[in-house]
Protein backbone atom coordinates (compact mmCIF):
# COMPACT_ATOMS: atom_id res chain seq x y z
CA UNK A 1 0.00 0.00 0.00
CA UNK A 2 1.23 3.48 -0.81
CA UNK A 3 2.09 5.75 2.06
CA UNK A 4 3.15 9.34 2.30
CA UNK A 5 6.91 8.89 2.35
CA UNK A 6 7.53 12.51 1.48
CA UNK A 7 6.10 13.86 4.75
CA UNK A 8 8.96 15.57 6.58
CA UNK A 9 9.86 14.87 10.16
CA UNK A 10 7.95 17.03 12.60
CA UNK A 11 9.98 20.02 13.59
CA UNK A 12 9.16 23.56 14.54
CA UNK A 13 10.48 25.16 11.37
CA UNK A 14 9.43 22.46 8.95
CA UNK A 15 8.58 23.44 5.39
CA UNK A 16 5.88 21.71 3.38
CA UNK A 17 4.55 21.81 -0.13
CA UNK A 18 0.87 22.52 -0.72
CA UNK A 19 -0.01 18.88 -1.30
CA UNK A 20 1.69 17.89 1.95
CA UNK A 21 -0.16 20.63 3.78
CA UNK A 22 -3.46 19.55 2.23
CA UNK A 23 -2.91 15.90 3.13
CA UNK A 24 -2.32 16.96 6.69
CA UNK A 25 -5.44 19.12 6.65
CA UNK A 26 -7.70 16.38 5.32
CA UNK A 27 -6.33 13.84 7.80
CA UNK A 28 -6.93 16.20 10.71
CA UNK A 29 -10.47 16.90 9.59
CA UNK A 30 -11.27 13.23 9.02
CA UNK A 31 -9.98 12.40 12.50
CA UNK A 32 -11.97 15.24 13.99
CA UNK A 33 -15.30 14.54 12.29
CA UNK A 34 -16.64 11.10 11.35
CA UNK A 35 -18.96 12.70 8.78
CA UNK A 36 -16.04 13.78 6.59
CA UNK A 37 -15.22 11.40 3.77
CA UNK A 38 -13.35 11.61 0.47
CA UNK A 39 -14.43 10.32 -2.91
CA UNK A 40 -13.01 10.57 -6.39
CA UNK A 41 -11.33 8.79 -9.26
CA UNK A 42 -8.23 6.73 -8.50
CA UNK A 43 -7.93 8.13 -5.02
CA UNK A 44 -6.96 4.72 -3.68
CA UNK A 45 -3.52 5.36 -5.15
CA UNK A 46 -3.47 9.02 -4.20
CA UNK A 47 -5.36 10.68 -7.06
CA UNK A 48 -3.74 12.71 -9.79
CA UNK A 49 -1.92 15.14 -7.53
CA UNK A 50 -1.42 12.73 -4.61
CA UNK A 51 -3.85 14.67 -2.46
CA UNK A 52 -5.25 11.42 -1.03
CA UNK A 53 -1.96 9.53 -0.72
CA UNK A 54 -2.00 7.38 2.40
CA UNK A 55 -5.61 8.19 3.32
CA UNK A 56 -6.89 4.70 2.57
CA UNK A 57 -4.42 3.18 5.04
CA UNK A 58 -5.64 5.32 7.88
CA UNK A 59 -9.35 5.63 7.15
CA UNK A 60 -10.26 2.58 5.09
CA UNK A 61 -12.45 2.15 2.02
CA UNK A 62 -15.61 3.24 3.83
CA UNK A 63 -14.32 6.80 4.02
CA UNK A 64 -11.98 6.87 1.04
CA UNK A 65 -14.12 5.90 -1.92
CA UNK A 66 -12.81 5.12 -5.36
CA UNK A 67 -15.53 6.20 -7.79
CA UNK A 68 -16.36 5.20 -11.33
CA UNK A 69 -15.56 7.82 -13.98
CA UNK A 70 -18.93 9.36 -13.35
CA UNK A 71 -18.59 12.99 -12.34
CA UNK A 72 -22.26 13.97 -12.48
CA UNK A 73 -23.13 10.84 -10.55
CA UNK A 74 -20.67 11.21 -7.72
CA UNK A 75 -21.11 14.98 -7.45
CA UNK A 76 -24.86 14.45 -7.12
CA UNK A 77 -24.24 11.67 -4.64
CA UNK A 78 -22.04 13.96 -2.56
CA UNK A 79 -24.77 16.63 -2.62
CA UNK A 80 -27.30 14.14 -1.31
CA UNK A 81 -24.94 12.92 1.39
CA UNK A 82 -24.24 16.53 2.41
CA UNK A 83 -27.97 17.30 2.62
CA UNK A 84 -28.20 14.47 5.14
CA UNK A 85 -25.42 15.80 7.32
CA UNK A 86 -22.23 14.35 5.90
CA UNK A 87 -19.25 16.43 4.81
CA UNK A 88 -17.96 15.02 1.54
CA UNK A 89 -14.71 16.07 -0.08
CA UNK A 90 -14.55 15.33 -3.79
CA UNK A 91 -11.06 14.95 -5.19
CA UNK A 92 -11.06 15.76 -8.88
CA UNK A 93 -8.17 14.40 -10.91
CA UNK A 94 -8.24 17.60 -12.89
CA UNK A 95 -10.62 20.45 -12.21
CA UNK A 96 -11.24 20.35 -15.94
CA UNK A 97 -13.36 17.22 -15.49
CA UNK A 98 -15.93 19.06 -13.43
CA UNK A 99 -17.88 20.30 -16.42
CA UNK A 100 -19.77 17.06 -17.00
CA UNK A 101 -21.23 17.73 -13.55
CA UNK A 102 -22.14 21.34 -14.34
CA UNK A 103 -25.87 20.88 -13.77
CA UNK A 104 -25.31 19.19 -10.44
CA UNK A 105 -23.13 22.05 -9.26
CA UNK A 106 -24.82 25.11 -10.72
CA UNK A 107 -28.46 24.05 -10.73
CA UNK A 108 -28.60 21.75 -7.72
CA UNK A 109 -25.72 22.33 -5.34
CA UNK A 110 -25.61 26.11 -5.56
CA UNK A 111 -29.38 26.66 -5.49
CA UNK A 112 -30.97 24.01 -3.34
CA UNK A 113 -30.54 25.92 -0.09
CA UNK A 114 -32.01 29.06 -1.62
CA UNK A 115 -34.91 27.39 -3.44
CA UNK A 116 -35.86 25.46 -0.33
CA UNK A 117 -36.07 28.61 1.76
CA UNK A 118 -33.10 27.58 3.88
CA UNK A 119 -34.29 24.06 4.64
CA UNK A 120 -31.03 22.42 3.66
CA UNK A 121 -27.35 23.21 3.70
CA UNK A 122 -24.69 21.53 1.58
CA UNK A 123 -21.27 21.31 3.21
CA UNK A 124 -19.21 19.97 0.33
CA UNK A 125 -15.62 20.60 -0.77
CA UNK A 126 -14.43 20.20 -4.35
CA UNK A 127 -10.67 19.70 -4.53
CA UNK A 128 -9.87 21.04 -8.00
CA UNK A 129 -6.47 21.22 -9.71
CA UNK A 130 -6.79 24.26 -11.97
CA UNK A 131 -4.92 26.17 -14.68
CA UNK A 132 -2.60 25.37 -17.55
CA UNK A 133 0.22 22.88 -17.21
CA UNK A 134 1.36 21.84 -20.67
CA UNK A 135 -1.50 19.50 -21.52
CA UNK A 136 -3.47 21.40 -24.15
CA UNK A 137 -6.81 23.13 -24.04
CA UNK A 138 -8.97 20.56 -22.24
CA UNK A 139 -6.71 20.26 -19.20
CA UNK A 140 -6.00 23.97 -18.82
CA UNK A 141 -9.18 25.65 -17.65
CA UNK A 142 -9.13 28.26 -14.95
CA UNK A 143 -12.00 26.52 -13.23
CA UNK A 144 -12.40 29.19 -10.57
CA UNK A 145 -13.24 31.84 -13.17
CA UNK A 146 -15.99 29.78 -14.75
CA UNK A 147 -17.89 29.43 -11.47
CA UNK A 148 -17.15 32.95 -10.28
CA UNK A 149 -20.57 34.37 -11.15
CA UNK A 150 -22.65 31.63 -9.53
CA UNK A 151 -24.33 32.63 -6.25
CA UNK A 152 -24.30 29.91 -3.61
CA UNK A 153 -20.75 28.67 -4.19
CA UNK A 154 -17.60 29.73 -2.38
CA UNK A 155 -14.30 29.72 -4.27
CA UNK A 156 -10.86 29.44 -2.70
CA UNK A 157 -7.58 29.76 -4.61
CA UNK A 158 -4.73 29.21 -2.17
CA UNK A 159 -1.16 29.79 -3.28
CA UNK A 160 1.01 28.82 -0.30
CA UNK A 161 1.21 25.70 1.88
CA UNK A 162 0.33 27.65 5.01
CA UNK A 163 -2.74 29.20 3.40
CA UNK A 164 -3.76 25.95 1.74
CA UNK A 165 -3.90 24.07 5.02
CA UNK A 166 -5.72 26.72 7.03
CA UNK A 167 -8.18 27.45 4.25
CA UNK A 168 -8.84 23.79 3.52
CA UNK A 169 -9.74 23.07 7.11
CA UNK A 170 -12.12 26.03 7.08
CA UNK A 171 -13.60 24.81 3.80
CA UNK A 172 -14.34 21.39 5.29
CA UNK A 173 -16.06 23.00 8.27
CA UNK A 174 -17.99 25.51 6.15
CA UNK A 175 -21.67 24.71 5.68
CA UNK A 176 -21.64 25.61 1.98
CA UNK A 177 -20.23 24.14 -1.21
CA UNK A 178 -16.64 25.29 -1.60
CA UNK A 179 -14.58 25.00 -4.78
CA UNK A 180 -11.00 24.65 -3.61
CA UNK A 181 -8.92 25.45 -6.68
CA UNK A 182 -5.18 24.86 -6.51
CA UNK A 183 -3.03 25.57 -9.53
CA UNK A 184 -1.50 22.42 -10.99
CA UNK A 185 1.97 23.97 -10.67
CA UNK A 186 1.54 24.67 -6.97
CA UNK A 187 0.85 21.29 -5.37
CA UNK A 188 4.48 20.22 -5.34
CA UNK A 189 3.42 16.62 -5.89
CA UNK A 190 6.15 14.17 -6.80
CA UNK A 191 6.80 14.25 -10.52
CA UNK A 192 4.92 17.50 -11.01
CA UNK A 193 6.38 20.88 -11.86
CA UNK A 194 6.43 23.34 -8.96
CA UNK A 195 6.22 27.06 -9.63
CA UNK A 196 9.28 28.68 -8.16
CA UNK A 197 9.09 31.65 -5.84
CA UNK A 198 10.16 32.53 -2.34
CA UNK A 199 6.88 31.13 -0.98
CA UNK A 200 6.12 28.03 -3.05
CA UNK A 201 7.34 25.88 -0.18
CA UNK A 202 6.83 27.25 3.25
CA UNK A 203 6.53 26.90 6.97
CA UNK A 204 3.42 25.16 8.21
CA UNK A 205 3.05 25.04 11.99
CA UNK A 206 2.37 21.74 13.65
CA UNK A 207 -0.25 23.24 15.90
CA UNK A 208 -3.73 23.47 14.47
CA UNK A 209 -4.91 26.70 12.88
CA UNK A 210 -7.72 27.87 10.60
CA UNK A 211 -7.81 30.68 8.05
CA UNK A 212 -11.29 32.14 7.55
CA UNK A 213 -12.70 32.05 4.04
CA UNK A 214 -12.95 35.54 2.54
CA UNK A 215 -9.90 37.06 4.17
CA UNK A 216 -7.08 38.09 1.84
CA UNK A 217 -3.44 38.46 2.73
CA UNK A 218 -0.72 40.93 1.83
CA UNK A 219 2.16 38.78 0.67
CA UNK A 220 4.59 41.68 0.24
CA UNK A 221 4.29 45.15 1.62
CA UNK A 222 4.90 48.07 -0.74
CA UNK A 223 3.96 51.69 -1.18
CA UNK A 224 3.92 52.66 -4.84
CA UNK A 225 1.67 50.18 -6.62
CA UNK A 226 -0.72 47.37 -5.68
CA UNK A 227 -0.54 44.05 -7.53
CA UNK A 228 -3.49 41.74 -6.86
CA UNK A 229 -2.88 38.16 -7.96
CA UNK A 230 -3.92 34.65 -7.01
CA UNK A 231 -2.78 31.10 -7.59
CA UNK A 232 0.25 30.68 -9.81
CA UNK A 233 0.02 34.35 -10.78
CA UNK A 234 0.73 35.30 -7.18
CA UNK A 235 4.12 33.62 -7.39
CA UNK A 236 4.96 35.25 -10.70
CA UNK A 237 3.82 38.64 -9.40
CA UNK A 238 5.86 38.21 -6.23
CA UNK A 239 8.97 37.33 -8.22
CA UNK A 240 8.49 40.48 -10.27
CA UNK A 241 7.81 42.65 -7.22
CA UNK A 242 10.88 41.33 -5.42
CA UNK A 243 13.06 42.03 -8.46
CA UNK A 244 11.63 45.53 -8.79
CA UNK A 245 12.27 46.17 -5.12
CA UNK A 246 15.99 45.77 -5.74
CA UNK A 247 15.59 48.24 -8.60
CA UNK A 248 14.01 50.76 -6.24
CA UNK A 249 10.29 50.29 -6.92
CA UNK A 250 8.07 49.37 -3.97
CA UNK A 251 5.17 47.17 -5.09
CA UNK A 252 2.61 45.69 -2.69
CA UNK A 253 1.42 42.19 -3.55
CA UNK A 254 -2.07 41.28 -2.38
CA UNK A 255 -3.34 37.69 -2.42
CA UNK A 256 -7.14 37.57 -2.20
CA UNK A 257 -6.87 33.82 -1.35
CA UNK A 258 -10.63 33.49 -1.88
CA UNK A 259 -12.57 34.73 -4.88
CA UNK A 260 -15.95 34.18 -3.18
CA UNK A 261 -16.24 35.79 -0.70
CA UNK A 262 -13.72 38.36 -1.91
CA UNK A 263 -11.79 40.58 0.49
CA UNK A 264 -12.47 43.79 -1.41
CA UNK A 265 -11.68 45.91 1.65
CA UNK A 266 -8.10 44.69 1.75
CA UNK A 267 -7.59 45.69 -1.88
CA UNK A 268 -9.28 49.07 -1.43
CA UNK A 269 -7.14 49.81 1.63
CA UNK A 270 -4.04 48.96 -0.36
CA UNK A 271 -5.03 51.04 -3.37
CA UNK A 272 -5.81 54.01 -1.17
CA UNK A 273 -2.19 53.83 0.01
CA UNK A 274 -0.50 53.12 -3.34
CA UNK A 275 -2.85 54.84 -5.82
CA UNK A 276 -2.08 52.33 -8.56
CA UNK A 277 -3.36 48.80 -9.21
CA UNK A 278 -2.62 45.91 -11.53
CA UNK A 279 -4.85 42.83 -11.34
CA UNK A 280 -3.28 39.57 -12.50
CA UNK A 281 -5.15 36.33 -13.17
CA UNK A 282 -4.44 33.30 -15.32
CA UNK A 283 -7.88 32.81 -16.83
CA UNK A 284 -9.25 34.37 -19.97
CA UNK A 285 -9.64 38.11 -19.69
CA UNK A 286 -13.33 38.22 -20.62
CA UNK A 287 -15.49 37.58 -17.59
CA UNK A 288 -12.58 37.13 -15.21
CA UNK A 289 -12.74 37.94 -11.51
CA UNK A 290 -10.38 40.81 -12.18
CA UNK A 291 -13.12 42.55 -14.17
CA UNK A 292 -15.39 42.49 -11.14
CA UNK A 293 -12.60 43.81 -8.94
CA UNK A 294 -11.80 46.56 -11.46
CA UNK A 295 -15.45 47.62 -11.34
CA UNK A 296 -15.37 47.69 -7.54
CA UNK A 297 -12.22 49.81 -7.59
CA UNK A 298 -13.78 52.17 -10.13
CA UNK A 299 -16.86 52.44 -7.98
CA UNK A 300 -15.25 52.88 -4.59
CA UNK A 301 -11.70 54.10 -5.01
CA UNK A 302 -11.43 55.89 -8.33
CA UNK A 303 -10.67 59.16 -6.58
CA UNK A 304 -7.55 57.65 -5.06
CA UNK A 305 -6.12 56.42 -8.35
CA UNK A 306 -3.27 58.14 -10.16
CA UNK A 307 -3.50 55.77 -13.12
CA UNK A 308 -6.10 53.57 -14.82
CA UNK A 309 -6.78 50.09 -13.49
CA UNK A 310 -4.78 47.59 -15.52
CA UNK A 311 -5.59 43.92 -15.93
CA UNK A 312 -3.23 41.16 -16.95
CA UNK A 313 -4.94 37.92 -18.01
CA UNK A 314 -4.90 35.34 -20.77
CA UNK A 315 -6.30 36.49 -24.10
CA UNK A 316 -9.72 35.12 -25.03
CA UNK A 317 -8.52 31.89 -26.64
CA UNK A 318 -8.46 28.26 -25.53
CA UNK A 319 -5.06 27.38 -24.07
CA UNK A 320 -2.79 26.04 -26.84
CA UNK A 321 -0.51 23.03 -26.40
CA UNK A 322 2.80 24.06 -27.96
CA UNK A 323 4.91 25.12 -24.97
CA UNK A 324 5.94 28.36 -26.68
CA UNK A 325 2.31 29.19 -27.36
CA UNK A 326 1.12 28.29 -23.88
CA UNK A 327 3.82 30.52 -22.42
CA UNK A 328 2.78 33.30 -24.74
CA UNK A 329 -0.86 33.08 -23.70
CA UNK A 330 -0.54 32.61 -19.92
CA UNK A 331 0.63 35.81 -18.22
CA UNK A 332 4.33 35.52 -17.48
CA UNK A 333 6.67 37.60 -15.39
CA UNK A 334 7.66 39.84 -18.29
CA UNK A 335 4.03 40.80 -18.97
CA UNK A 336 3.41 41.47 -15.30
CA UNK A 337 6.57 43.55 -15.10
CA UNK A 338 5.64 45.53 -18.19
CA UNK A 339 2.19 46.24 -16.81
CA UNK A 340 3.60 47.51 -13.53
CA UNK A 341 6.15 49.71 -15.27
CA UNK A 342 3.53 51.01 -17.68
CA UNK A 343 1.39 52.18 -14.78
CA UNK A 344 4.33 53.71 -12.98
CA UNK A 345 4.96 55.88 -16.03
CA UNK A 346 1.49 57.41 -15.69
Amino acid sequence: MLTDRTAPAQSSNRELTIVQALREAVREEMRRDEQVFVLGEDIRIGGSFLFTLGLLDEFGPERVLNTPISEAGFVGLAIGAAVQGMRPIIDFQYGDFIFTAFDQIIQQCAKLRYMSGGQVSIPLVFQLPTGASGRGAQHANSVETIFFGIPGLKIVTPATPYDAKGLFKSAVRDNNPVLFCVHKHLYGSKGRQLAKSSISRGHVPETEYLIPLGKGDIKKRGSEITVVANGQMLHRSLNVAEALESEGLSAEVVDPRCLVPFDTELVIDSVVRTSRIVIVEEGNERGGWGAQLAAEIANRAIGYLDAPVLRVASPNVPIPFSPVLESAVIPGESRIRSAILELMDQ
Binding site: G76, G80, V83, Q84
Partner: peptide, 14 residues
Protein backbone atom coordinates in the same frame (compact mmCIF):
# COMPACT_ATOMS: atom_id res chain seq x y z
CA UNK B 1 -31.36 10.50 -9.06
CA UNK B 2 -27.73 10.83 -7.92
CA UNK B 3 -28.84 13.10 -5.10
CA UNK B 4 -31.32 10.47 -3.90
CA UNK B 5 -28.50 7.93 -4.07
CA UNK B 6 -26.38 10.32 -2.01
CA UNK B 7 -29.00 10.64 0.70
CA UNK B 8 -29.19 6.86 0.75
CA UNK B 9 -25.39 6.78 1.02
CA UNK B 10 -25.62 8.92 4.18
CA UNK B 11 -28.39 6.71 5.61
CA UNK B 12 -26.26 3.64 5.07
CA UNK B 13 -23.10 5.20 6.47
CA UNK B 14 -24.92 6.69 9.46
Amino acid sequence: SPIAAGMAFAFKRQ
